[in-house]
Design a binder for these strands. Structure first.
Lengths: 350, 350
DNA sequence: TTGAAAGCGCTAACAG
DNA sequence: CTGTTAGCGCTTTCAA
């Protein structure tokens, strides 16, 4: 009735510990422990210990050391969904930077559900993560405020909440870029497919968009504004609703992301309209598919935000200081879906 | 010179442990430990202990319990990249199932690089993961064979390697479906954009495709075969190369995934050809964008594979048995990019 | 520098 | 069912 230890056959020798090395070298466990944390060439003892460790195939046990040091060497990242490629890119960069710093990353997806957010963060905390990267913050701030009370270093990425350290894209500026571009292209009746209202990201983009429109003496009327969400499907539904109310608009800004723009394109086409010609379509983020599909969009520095967030968090963990918030500028990428008239507009089902 | 314990101000009371509860209830630590693992209503003691734990805000320390039990409650998933939405979907399902079973998931991305694969797996092992889900297996089997020697329960997902427990899509059948469809549509000159050759997935799809073509007395000649990889860019480059050699083919199967098909579409359009009309394009996986973009593709049960893999792994961890391999059938999804002639083919830049 | 000793929080023999 | 005891592998006082 032994505990179910994995693979402890009779002959399977136990994994070497500090004890093993100590016995092999005739040193004490504490000396070995110390030596292992110096470089091999720093002292003769260190060299001996490192050699023995190498020879015995010693691997440190982070669990045991965690228990003692109260540091897990793990950071938590909470995202709304990793199937959103923007979040996946952020995660990837976080992982890269964390790995370099000797940390592992535990991710948790919350689907932007407040209850799930709390649950998953608590779970990460019980795993003793040394810090948190929050990529699913909500505009109302309740969530981020709660995070701040946890006593764990943290930093927001991509999504803003007022008063918290955050690595952000200037979404407001991004929205402005889109409006300026469309108006310059001669569009006067502009429609807006919004993202979720809990996200400061889409809120700010819409804000910037509307402001520029207003500055030009125009407006985005209520009936040309519709919820577009964050997914292809919701973008499609949003555009269908828009088309049900009006056919007079000549351009639409899908400020949630590029996927909603793809959905909008799909709905336009289904309605017999030619995207890019009858209706200009602009997305946000510049995901890989946007290029192939000739979607005008705004390129946001997601990868950089991920790196920045991770680097900031690691240094916050080291030094105990609060990270400095940073904002990066987005860039407009004009493609066929918003530049008319254009030869390449016609032709191609895809 | 204390260790840098996070947030241990004078007044910040220490986090409650079993000891705290033991003292509060007058019981011993071991009784508390046991009671906590029973349901509250199972015995009077259990009820008392649970109540006290609740009142004191006790949270179990998985690190400490790991050290003792030699089980971490964490499973590792190794993927080639989470920015590949197919892998992200698998991860998401794995996470869902694992969470339900009380496990956390540690992911590692390897970019399909053999050295990175080893490194990251070793890292997961040093974190004492209780099992591994391998979603980036290679066809040559060396990697999977190595995994098998580790003495940790594991299961492959999506990507096959001979002789290992795996949750798979019948990719060969998927390839056949595509060829049958295209030939039925009247295509005779078929091009093939392959995926990476280390992946059994794309290899099998290409195999199935070629077999059907051959059964119809046709063939996919060397000069109509080109590497398409797994990304939009590589798909685009592949199609450019194809077009540089021939303009006579009327259909192309991008067997790597849908993204390479988007890339191919882009290249076709840049060459003045109309995708879906001049050249039929078929992808693989049926990602969300494929629907909006009218791409014919093969729907593979990624989500299900993720669930199956996680469930199989958990039960392997529990019972010590080797998981049973499972294969699921793919499904052809015909859209505008391969059904000609078609009204909706014309028009639309996107 | 080094080693002895204590202990992180938990679980599991073992004996009552 | 309960408590006592021991110890997982590691780090870190403390004294030599």
């Amino acid at each position: 009735m032994r505990p179910p230890r994995p693979h402890d056959d009779a002959q399977a020798q136990a994994r070497p510990t500090l004890r093993t090395i100590a016995d092999a070298t005739g040193l004490s466990v504490s000396t070995v422990s110390r030596a292992l944390r110096r470089d091999a060439h720093e002292s003769p003892t260190a060299a001996i210990v490192h050699a023995a460790a190498e020879r015995l195939g010693y691997l440190p046990d982070p669990v045991a050391s965690s228990l003692r040091t109260r540091r897990s060497g793990v950071i938590g990242m909470v995202a709304h969904s990793l199937t959103d490629v923007v979040q996946a890119i952020i995660y990837q960069q976080v992982d890269k930077v964390a790995l370099r710093g000797g940390f592992d990353v535990l991710v948790a997806a919350t689907a932007d559900d407040p209850e799930t957010q709390r649950e998953r963060v608590r779970l990460l905390l019980s795993r003793r993560v040394d810090g948190l990267i929050i990529a699913d913050a909500h505009r109302d701030g309740a969530y981020a405020d709660w995070i701040a009370t946890l006593g764990v270093p943290y930093v927001l990425a991509m999504r803003n909440a007022p008063g918290h350290p955050a690595m952000l894209c200037d979404d407001y500026a991004g929205g402005r870029l889109v409006a300026e571009h469309l108006i310059e292209q001669g569009h006067r009746e502009l429609a807006l497919l919004t993202g979720p209202d809990y996200s400061a990201v889409s809120f700010d983009r819409a804000q910037g968009f509307r402001d520029v429109v207003r500055e030009h003496g125009l407006e985005v009327p209520e009936h040309l504004t519709e919820y577009g969400g964050l997914h292809t499907e919701s973008g499609q539904v949003g555009m269908e609703r828009l088309l049900g109310r009006s056919r007079s608009f000549t351009a639409v800004f899908c400020c949630g992301n590029d996927f909603t723009a793809f959905g909008a394109v799909s709905a336009l086409r289904a309605a017999g309209l030619v995207p890019g010609s009858d209706v200009a379509v602009v997305g946000f983020n510049d995901v890989a598919a946007a290029k192939a599909l000739q979607l005008t969009t705004v390129s946001s520095p997601q990868a950089e935000l991920g790196e920045l967030a991770a680097a900031a968090l690691l240094s916050a963990i080291e030094t105990g200081t609060t990270p400095q918030s940073t904002t990066r500028a987005p860039e407009l990428v004009v493609r066929a879906s918003s530049s008319r008239p254009l030869a390449m507009m016609r032709g191609g089902s895809v």
